[in-house]
Computed example of a mutant assay.
Amino acid sequence: MMQRMLHLRPVRALSCNIDGVSVLEFALVLPLFMTLGMYGAEIAWLNAASLEVSQVAVSMADNASRIGQTDNSGVTPTISSSDVESVLTGALEEGGTINLEDNGRVILSSLEGHPVTGKQYVHWQQCKGKGKQQSAHGKADITGGLLSSVLDGLSLGGKTIKAPSGGAVMVAEVWYEYKGLFGTLFVDGIVLHEEAAVIARDDRSIDNGLTGNSSKNGC
């Protein structure tokens, strides 16, 4: 009996020893806290990227709507491909913090009412960026054919957008392929898509579409 008690004495002493308990507990919970922290950082960066994409879309549509405002020639201005090039380039530069040019695409479309049929159609469309995405509203249809997907207006944010008679609506789309902070550990294959639309603020000569080399940034 005495020998058995001698054998149990070290076990009892160990059970009463609290040295290093905090270190052991910390070691046990550290992986959980690290995982939660990394996941929180991932979600925060995803939300920041989504906000940036949304702001770029709004800014691009607004800038496009102002094209021609500085024309003081007295003649209704036309919109050139170089004007649109400036707007697209500005949008990519604005999205530089998320590397929008390499990981996404910006698309600008001119929604107009056909002068003959009165139906809505995309008169011209320009794209820029290394992404391969296409507009969610279809490609430009310079003839205003009845096969257009926006004949009765363009659906945006649950509302139907229509261009006024003789005017145009600048529709901006921004696509962005989100790259996770920790690779594919928490997210994989997320593509952000934001849109904005603003009516052209001044009179424009829209009958002939874009002037200049519109094929440079063709979609």
Rank of each mutant, 00 (worst) to 15 (best):
M1R: 14
Q3K: 15
Q3G: 14
R4V: 01
R4Y: 07
M5H: 14
L8F: 04
R9K: 10
R9L: 03
R9M: 09
R12Y: 15
A13F: 05
G20T: 02
V21A: 12
V21L: 15
S22K: 03
E25K: 08
F26T: 06
V29W: 03
F33D: 05
L36W: 09
Y39E: 02
L46W: 03
L46H: 04
A49G: 04
A49S: 04
S50T: 14
Q55N: 13
Q55C: 07
Q55R: 09
V56E: 01
A57W: 00
V58C: 04
A61G: 14
A64N: 02
R66S: 01
I67A: 02
G74V: 06
G74T: 08
G74M: 10
G74Y: 13
T78A: 14
T78F: 08
T78K: 09
S80E: 04
S82K: 04
S82I: 15
E85F: 08
E85H: 05
S86Q: 10
V87W: 03
A91N: 04
T97G: 06
N99D: 08
L100K: 00
E101Q: 12
N103A: 03
R105Q: 11
R105T: 03
R105D: 06
V106Q: 01
S109M: 08
L111C: 02
H114Y: 05
P115K: 05
V116A: 12
Y121C: 01
Y121F: 11
V122I: 15
H123R: 10
W124H: 04
Q126G: 10
K130M: 13
G131S: 08
G131H: 11
Q133M: 09
S135F: 07
H137D: 15
G138A: 05
G138R: 07
K139Q: 12
D141E: 10
D141N: 12
G144P: 05
G144T: 00
G145A: 06
G145K: 12
S148N: 06
S149D: 14
V150K: 07
L151G: 11
L151Y: 01
D152Y: 14
S155N: 14
S155A: 15
G157H: 11
G157F: 03
K159M: 14
A163K: 01
G167R: 13
G167A: 06
E173Y: 00
F182D: 05
V187A: 06
G189T: 12
H193M: 05
A196G: 06
V198C: 13
A200D: 04
R201T: 13
I206D: 13
I206H: 11
D207T: 12
T211I: 15
G212Q: 08
S214R: 12
S215W: 00
K216I: 13
N217G: 00
G218R: 05
C219W: 03
